[in-house]
Design a protein around this nucleic acid. Structure first.
Lengths: 232, 232
DNA sequence: TCAAAAGTGTTAACCATACACCCATGC
DNA sequence: GCATGGGTGTATGGTTAACACTTTTGA
């Protein structure tokens, strides 16, 4: 492999991408973190991500990094924003463009990558110390979800395709950080036709089994455009 | 001045900042554009902006560029996001981090900068052709305002400190692109105490003079946190 | 006296809120 | 039969939506 250098007339920062991967794991909203194997922040937990290739788009870079690091290639990415404090990376000036995505656990086969970096899901309300300014990035992502949840239906592409309404409700509660009224929440979902009941039930505990529902995609999109607040 | 080069082991993109400056001009929501004096896109209209200094924060870079280019140093900046299509700039790979800000015309003394680049306000619904992907950036900013206006009170720091309610209403209408009911709009603003009436009137046309109002900052902040939709 | 923009109130339908009890199951 | 989470209905008050006419001014 040829050794090469890149020369510029003016100093250039490095550009990286990072991604907050949300998933529903053990009935909670969690994010996927990687334990760093190198300095800086060796052994700390960090968002999956890496440096931008000079010819690839920002989204391609995220998809490539996630494929490599968590063996999952997301279809949809949503930009959180750019994080560029001059000292956010001790090595050199690095601007990170952060994204978030949803991972339906049923669709993913997560394996630690070939480098055997450790991967783990963490409940959003119980995160470990994070490398770099990754906590700031996660918090920015959560703020976006908090706003989203108050303006549009939420959960499609994140929850399993068949789910209990109480699971959807608890994801909402994880995001907004306060309890919702069960009766009102269900009434609204059904009234606007956002979910349709199935004749299937989930028996995961020694209690009454819960009915499963699917999103009604047509109405989901309709109210995504029109706007709806399921949190009240 | 010493000639110097900057050498990296991996290729680095350039990083720029651009800013959509919103102002209320001739009773409309307008943005400030600069006519480019150099290639590429010579003579096209473009957002004010420029390259990031290697040691300055993203926001500092925007403030510096706006000071230089439009003689106005904004206090608050809001990030739109990063725009990084590989071919968005024909010169080299450039990632642009875009911001928007509000400029109260009463507080600014805009002069074309020393380089005598032409500055002009353009109504958001009647923009000229823009350089680079700046139309995409402006549209992203407008989408943010469209969402904002449906979730929080809007206009503080943008409108003159004393204004007619019909001016505020028409700014809302510029953003959402549809007419609002005058009675309902005013009723809501007053009911929630978002504005307070003054004993001053504006006579700018040969008709009945309009009462001026100020924002009630305390309630404005309160409903910004709590959320309110003045568009319905 | 006309044209133009400012300003004002009421009603009916809908929606949000708050709240408590029964159901189905496995142990 | 009990513990646990699943599931349901109603009444009240507040919010939205729709609507048309009078006022003030300068020309």
């Amino acid at each position: 492999m040829k050794k090469q250098y890149y020369i510029y007339k003016y100093p250039h920062p490095a550009v990286a991408v990072d991604c907050v991967v949300f998933g529903v794991v053990s009935s909670c909203l969690e994010i996927l973190l990687i334990q760093r194997r190198n300095e800086p922040y060796k052994d700390s937990w960090a968002l999956p991500g890496g440096f931008l290739g000079i010819d690839e788009s920002l989204e391609e870079a995220v998809k490539r990094e996630l494929s490599e690091e968590i063996n999952y290639r997301p279809e949809y990415l949503y930009q959180i924003g750019a994080f560029g404090d001059p000292d956010r990376d001790p090595r050199e000036r690095v601007i990170s463009i952060a994204y978030y995505t949803f991972l339906q656990i049923e669709k993913a086969c997560l394996v630690a990558n070939s480098d055997a970096a450790k991967l783990e899901w963490f409940y959003i309300r119980n995160l470990p110390n994070l490398a770099f300014d990754h906590l700031k990035i996660v918090n920015a992502a959560l703020e976006i979800l908090q706003k989203k949840v108050k303006c549009e239906p939420f959960g499609y592409g994140l929850l399993p395709s068949k789910f209990r309404l109480s699971l959807l409700q608890s994801i909402y509660e994880d995001i907004i950080g306060e309890p919702l009224d069960k009766r009102n929440f269900r009434k609204k979902l059904l009234k606007y036709g956002l979910v349709k009941p199935l004749n299937e039930f989930e028996k995961i505990h020694p209690h009454r089994p819960a009915r499963l529902y699917e999103f009604n995609y047509e109405n989901y999109i309709k109210y995504k455009e029109k706007g709806i607040d399921l949190t009240r």
